[in-house]
Design a protein around this nucleic acid. Structure first.
Lengths: 182, 182
DNA sequence: TATCTCATGTAAGTGGTTACATGATTGC
DNA sequence: GCAATCATGTAACCACTTACATGAGATA
């Protein structure tokens, strides 16, 4: 249900093509949402059917034709209602934890490697986020940031705090795995 | 793909009914995995077809009949291979962050309430986890814990560290929302 | 008398991934 | 000449949710 609303949120900023929305997932939204281009195009189709967005086809020279989507007033209303609606509990499914338990039970020897490889990924993410923070959000106090950037910054902070917590946990796990090695 | 492996992991401990596996999600695995009973029964069917588990029907007095599932040796092998297989990136989809951005854009007045209600949920979770930790895992040093409980404890620690990070982030968000109120 | 526990499922639908498909233009 | 960017989609499949369905026994 949520991807549709993510798309509506992007389009609330202004008209965009499916291609541009997909890019937004790789750029700004990458650290709290991801979606394949297929799913985005699919949902744009559903949203159009539902009358929440509309598009105008634009033919271009030297480039494929494109469809520029924009919110309808129904889409704007739908987004407004969704924001205020009660949130149902997110599901938690952490595959690494399952692997650790399973690995212990089957007597796997590769659990240190498994954790180490995940650690690398999380360290990279954290480094990226900190670089973005240093470049775009180093203003202190917060009031120095333009209001419309403050919550965007908070989504980045979520990533930073989340990754730090993960890494602190990984330290504990590595210590535990060391006690079990002997 | 992963729920099947979670089920195999549970069954590696010993035979169980679908009902008991579902209960395990409410108890021990609740803080890092959840699944509906329908999905569990469905996947037990698929796993049986695939020859990774088998069941024996047990008829009971004063109780419905039940199917007691156990791992086959193929199932044991499949679990062993899965543990060592490379992990593909998990998807990140944080609905609350989308709501905050959307709420800002549509000019919603209810964002403090939204964050507050989520905070309550996370505080409750943290309290539960800390209670479990105090009751079952207070042994220090870690070597005092039986080896087979140490990684189980680490799954709990993941929950604790994750919830604390979430709450620290919520503090920041509330401060930001306060700057935007004026 | 009402709710909880035990115990298992079907059917319909939502949300998402993976593989496949096309094809011109721009930059190294 | 080769990869990346721009730009859109279909088809098959996988994972999961929600609603519906049944029914006995134990507990308050």
């Amino acid at each position: 249900m949520a991807l549709k609303h993510v798309i509506l949120t992007v389009l609330h900023e202004g008209p965009a093509t499916g291609y541009e929305i997909v890019k937004a997932f790789d750029d700004v939204m990458g650290y709290f949402w991801n979606a394949s281009h297929q799913q985005v195009y699919h949902d744009l189709g559903r949203l159009t059917e539902a009358g929440l967005v509309r598009f105008t086809e634009v033919s271009q020279d030297h480039r494929p034709d494109k469809k520029v989507y924009e919110l309808t007033s129904e889409g704007r209303d739908a987004l407004r209602h969704w924001v205020e609606a009660p949130m149902k509990p997110q599901r938690t499914q952490d595959e690494l934890l399952v692997r650790l338990l399973a690995g212990e039970r089957v007597g796997s020897q590769g659990m240190e490697d498994l954790v180490a490889s995940q650690r690398t990924l999380h360290e990279e993410k954290l480094r990226t986020y900190l670089a973005i923070e240093a470049e775009h959000f180093r203003e202190v106090p917060l009031e120095a940031l333009p209001p419309e950037h403050r919550l965007v910054y908070m989504t980045l902070r979520r990533g930073i705090l989340g990754e730090r917590a993960w890494l602190a946990w990984a330290d504990e796990v590595e210590a535990v795995l060391a006690t079990m090695r002997e």
